[in-house]
Design a protein around this nucleic acid. Sequence first.
DNA 1: AAGATGCACAACCGCATTGTG
DNA 2: ACACAATGCGGTTGTGCATCT
Length: 295
Amino acid sequence: MGRTPCCERKGLKKGPWGPEEDEILINYINKHGHGSWRSLPKLAGLRRCGKSCRLRWTNYLRPDIKRGPFTLDEEKLVIQLHAILGNRWAAIASQLPGRTDNEIKNLWNTHLKKRLLCMGVDPLTHEPVTSGGPTTRPRSSPATRHMAQWESARLEAEARLSKGSLFFNSPPTSVKPDPDFFLRLWNSEVGESFRKLNGEAKTDCRSPISQASSSTKCGSVSGVTVDVGPIAAGSSTPKSSRTEDPIMFDASFSSCSNESEDSSDTALQLLLDFPINNDMSFLEDVDTYATPLQC
DNA sequence: AAGATGCACAACCGCATTGTG
DNA sequence: ACACAATGCGGTTGTGCATCT
């Protein structure tokens, strides 16, 4: 089907935004809200396409944007979330108040990816690089090993979810895992405890859920109400309704087959236990890993 | 001092998804 | 159910600045 372009190409300005354009856009949105992005440029008197306006607003002009370098905690969070969510930058960004998907994507591509490579971890798979990789640390360093365990847990959980989706009365064609599953998990009580990298969590890394469910199998998250409402105050952009409804894992989640229980239970255990002692000290070792040249 | 190179970040492009009539 | 518009998202590119040779 012939897809109409998002805007007429003729006469529309491209490239970097000027301060006066920014001002026009800010003033207009402050007065009227963005409404329809497509009609906004015309109404505001900008020679830009709506898409460009939306991008400029969401990535740069929004008042709740946090500018400046990422903190260590933010970087840790990005890495952990990336291990869970992969390149789903918008989902990752929704967990970091004031940060945009674009910003996080850039951070990953320019800093974190290289840093992981330097420590011998494949940034795509979060597994240790086995051969030929630029490794300066022993590959068996705790951080590396844990990364691998973590990724292993992720893959196992994903596989289980694929199986599990068959039990969700899904049509046979939609065996694809719910893409927001891990985000929901992250936003759940499980994720909450998981996020507590510092403070009291250090005394006992295992989450309350983990402790409470240590004797349960596979369905340890059954009945956990997962509130996936935006945690980040800064995520002003309304996400699609897919992630806004509270999810209750019903019993069907725990109805996976017995043979998958062992591995998936291990996976879940790893999920709940990572990161033991918050072992991402490599991030703090800025002097050692700041630049690829030092690998 | 000047050109080459690398890096960081903003912006664009095109596909996917969602909403609506 | 379908077509199409609108929007969201992730990959990629362009640009300006800093550093190197």
